[in-house]
Each structure stands twice: as C-alpha cells, then as structure tokens.
Computed example of a mutant assay.
Amino acid sequence: MIINFLNSYIINLAIIVATIFGLYFSSLKHYLTNDEVEVEFIEPSAKLKISFSTEIILGLFIGLMCFFISMNRIPVDNMRSVDVRYLPVYFSVYYGSPMTGIVTALTLIGTKSIEYYFFEALPSEIINNVAITIAILIISILIDKKQMKPKKAILTCLIYTIIIRFFLATLVLFKDLNLELMIHFCLHSLVFSSLFLITGWLLNNAIIISERIHVYRTSSVFDSLTGAYNKESFYFFLDIAYNQAIHENKAFSLALIDFDNFKEINDTYGHLVGDKVLSEVASSFQSCSKKFSSLQFFRIGGDELAIIWKQEEIPSNYFKIINTKLKKLEIEKDFDNDLLSLSIGLVHLSPQQKSEKTINVKQIFRLADEALYEAKKAGKNQVIEKNITI
C-alpha cells in the first residue's frame, strides 16, 4: 500500500511539474522570439505575454495532461483515492494566462465527460468534475487579477479549494456522513494539500533560479543603460564575424561610432540628460536595426558605439535614416538637437581566396578606429569608409 502510494504520488508530482515547466518555458521562448527582448531585462516573475493561438495550444496540452493525471489516482485507504487533476488548472492561469486556464479547464471537463459517458459514471462524479474544475478556475483567475505573490496565491487557492470540496462532499454524502468519512476526507485533503504545496514550491524556486540566471546573463552581455550589447560581447561577436570570414568566406563590416559633442551635452545639460541622450540614440539605432537582421549593435565605451554587419554591403541609407531620427528626438524641452551628430569609421572586409590572411581582429578594430579619427579630423558628422581584403 505504501509503495503504491509513493509511486502514484511521485508520478503525479512529476507529471504536474513537467507540464507546468513546459508551459512556462514555452511561453518564455515564444515571448523572447516574438517580442525580441533579448536586448532587454526580464523582470522577475513578470507575466509573459503570448499570442492567442499559443494560449489555446498550451491550454489543450495541459488539459490533456490533467486527464492523464486523473487516470493515476493516489491510494490513501480502502475508500476513494486522491485525484489531483485540478492542480494544473491553477498553475496554467498563474504561470500562463486566464485564457490558457480556461482552455485547460474546458479540455479537462470535456475529456472526463467523454470518459464518464462511456463508463456510465455516477451523477455525483459528473457534478464533481464540472463544479470543482470551474471553481478552481474562477479562484485562479481572481488570484491572477489581484497579482498575488506565489506563496500567498497558492495558499489562497488551496484554502478555497478545500472549502469547496468539503462543501460538495457534505452536500452529496450528507445522509451517510460519519466519522470514517470525515477521517477519509481529512487524509484526502492532507495528501492533496501536500502535493499542491510541494508542486508550487518546486515550480516557484525553479522559475526564480531561471530568472536570476537570465538577469546575470543579461548583465554580463548587455549594457544596462542602452540595452545594447556591451564591450565584452562586442569582442566576442567580432571574433565570430572574423572567423566566419576566414573559414566560411563570408564578408562583414565594422562601424565605430562616436558622438561629436557629447562632452558639451554633459557640460551644458548635465549627466542625467547625457544618459538620456545615449539611451534615446541607442533606441534609434536599435529600432532602425530591426530592418537589417544581419547587424548587431553595441555600446563599447562612454559615448562610443559599434555595429557589426555580416553581409557584403552596408545598406547605403542606414546612417541617413539614423541622422533623420536624431534630428527628431525629443530629449528635453530646451535641448538643441543640432548637438546630436555622429562621426563614423566604417570598414568593409571581404575574404580573398588564397590570401595569406595576415590581418587579425585587433588590426581590424584599429583600422575602423583610424577611419573614425579621419572622420573627426575632416570636420565631424560624417562617415569615412574603407574596403579591405582579408
């Protein structure tokens, strides 16, 4: 009996945890892909916005898993075994969305109704299936709207669920209610509660760890002010572009970008405005960069930016678009947008077959830096281009 109990308990726990992990990380992957937030920080425990079709698909999957969970009940005594099929309904709302929870609940009700139809279940079974599933769904949606913290949310749902189950059990078994049934209900609730709480604890801690890892990753890869890749990432991606050029015969280009009047901006308007200028200009680059999937944008110093293109030709209108955007930026009420000008050193690197490949990454950076210096020396607010074979 104990072995059967442990086997069923662990199997149910594993199925529920795996199912909700699948929900959360599928939502996270979809969110990152569609919203392109690889350049942003994800706030811990933030609600992931996913498409309607994804909500439906995830809800159907979780609902089917609820049905399979109902086929693996947990034996506690000689009476009715514990059925924890309702737990994923709560988690599908809390870690997914109300729509995901609704689809999960409807799928569970539908699949169990089909089972009851073919196996001629008692009316109490049918009522219990619909009533408890809908009750947990409503409670979960209300908890979601109040944006409760994980611990408070799961305790709230658990308390209300036990109350509702006790009420339904009392209503159905009122005439036959005795001490043995009360003990059975208490054991039933204890097992149900323990599985609910352990599942919630495992999921919450695992997701918190995942989110912290993401924050650490983004803090080591991205610049916190602008959201652009940072200097360390720049050298990493420059190495990749260089190695692809050498080994895969792929051309790429490197642009080093410097503000012409950044010191004057800081001296005139203060460093807070200077930070806002950097952030707004970086946003302009990033919004423009979305049209060109082959480029990556970096902040490599105080007011120094960089772009790496993995293609043979630079879009000729790219920097023209940027200059137009800069003139339209709204920084401060009295801010002079004429101060927003950039000098750019740009090198185009083309691999040449049977060459000795004598140039290295440091030399490529130096050449782009020299082109930038020439742009500054020639009067600023311009692009100096160089073509190099490697």
Rank of each mutant, 00 (worst) to 15 (best):
F5E: 05
S8N: 02
F25A: 05
L28P: 08
L32Q: 13
D35K: 13
E36G: 03
K47Q: 14
I50D: 00
L58R: 05
F61K: 04
G63W: 04
F68R: 01
M71F: 12
M71D: 00
R73S: 14
I74W: 03
P75I: 02
V82A: 09
R85I: 11
Y90E: 06
Y90V: 03
F91C: 07
G110H: 10
K112A: 11
I114K: 04
I114H: 04
E115L: 10
I126H: 02
I127R: 08
L142M: 14
I143V: 14
K145T: 04
K149V: 15
L155I: 12
C157H: 09
T161M: 02
F174S: 06
E180H: 11
E180D: 13
I183P: 00
H184V: 15
C186G: 03
L187Q: 13
F192G: 12
S193W: 10
T199K: 07
T199M: 10
L203E: 09
L203G: 00
N204Y: 00
N205C: 02
N205G: 03
A206D: 09
I208E: 02
I213Q: 11
H214D: 15
F222R: 14
L238V: 02
N243L: 09
H247Y: 15
H247M: 11
A255L: 13
L256R: 09
D258Y: 06
N261L: 04
L272I: 12
V273Q: 03
D275W: 03
E280T: 05
V281H: 01
S284G: 10
F285Q: 04
Q286T: 10
S287V: 15
C288H: 01
C288K: 01
F292N: 11
L295C: 15
I300E: 08
G301S: 07
G301I: 15
L305N: 07
A306W: 07
I307Q: 03
I314Q: 10
S316Q: 12
N317A: 07
E330D: 14
F335M: 05
F335R: 01
N337W: 00
D338Y: 14
L340G: 00
I344T: 12
I344V: 14
V347L: 00
Q352T: 13
Q363Y: 01
Y373M: 12
A378I: 06
